[in-house]
């Protein structure tokens, strides 16, 4: 019995090591600290390279470009993708569903969506960046210029000369 639980503990240990046993502290620009697993933090290529370089893991990472609200949301994504396995069909479907709900929520608040996009870009979180940019692209897709202006609240400032140029290029649109 003792050897059995010992083996199980060793296996759990090994698994933990693999997925990142250490905890990492990320600090938002408001000074709020978030403690995440290394596996979760490794979703960010920026942090990953700093960890691999043997940088200041213990001191934590200050993120001067990200506010607390955005960072909390980004970490939510990283936890989901970093800490969970995605080997079976079911697991992958669960992740896909998470992504779908995640982006649907962001899509309702465009300003927040942009903040998360910028954070994903800054932290080089490829999956999250692809998710948010695709969401913005989907908003643009299939709309006329007028509809795009309405959707994003953009002021029309093109000059007559610009319009002339556009008309010339517009032979196929």
């Amino acid at each position: 019995m003792a050897t059995g639980s010992g083996a199980a503990a060793a296996a759990a240990d090994a698994e933990e090591k693999e997925s990142g046993s250490r905890m990492i502290t990320l600090t938002s620009n408001e000074g709020k600290a978030f403690v995440v697993t290394e596996a979760s933090a490794r979703q960010s290529a920026t942090i990953r390279s700093m960890v691999d370089d043997g940088g200041c893991v213990d001191k934590g990472f200050p993120l001067p470009n990200v506010d607390s609200k955005t960072l909390a949301r980004v970490i939510q994504y990283c936890d989901e993708h970093g800490n969970k396995e995605a080997h079976t069909v079911d697991e992958r479907a669960a992740l896909a569903k998470f992504d779908k709900d995640f982006i649907a929520e962001l899509d309702a608040d465009k300003a927040f969506l942009y903040d998360v996009t910028m954070a994903a870009n800054y932290l080089h979180i490829q999956g999250l960046f692809a998710l948010t940019t695709q969401c913005i692209a989907d908003t643009i897709k299939g709309k006329t210029p007028e509809e795009i202006r309405t959707a994003f609240g953009i002021e029309y400032d093109l000059t007559a000369q610009d319009e002339e140029e556009i008309k010339e290029e517009d032979t196929h649109a």
């Binding site: 400032d157 610009d162 649109a173």
Partner: peptide, 27 residues
């Protein structure tokens, strides 16, 4: 908000017609 670089990455995901329409939105 996003800057030209990130917006460029967004437009990379669009089809040609959508990008063409984006040229007529604003300067």
């Amino acid at each position: 908000v996003l800057g030209e670089e990130v917006m460029g990455r967004v437009m990379e995901l669009l089809d040609a017609r959508s990008v063409a329409r984006c040229t007529a939105v604003s300067r």
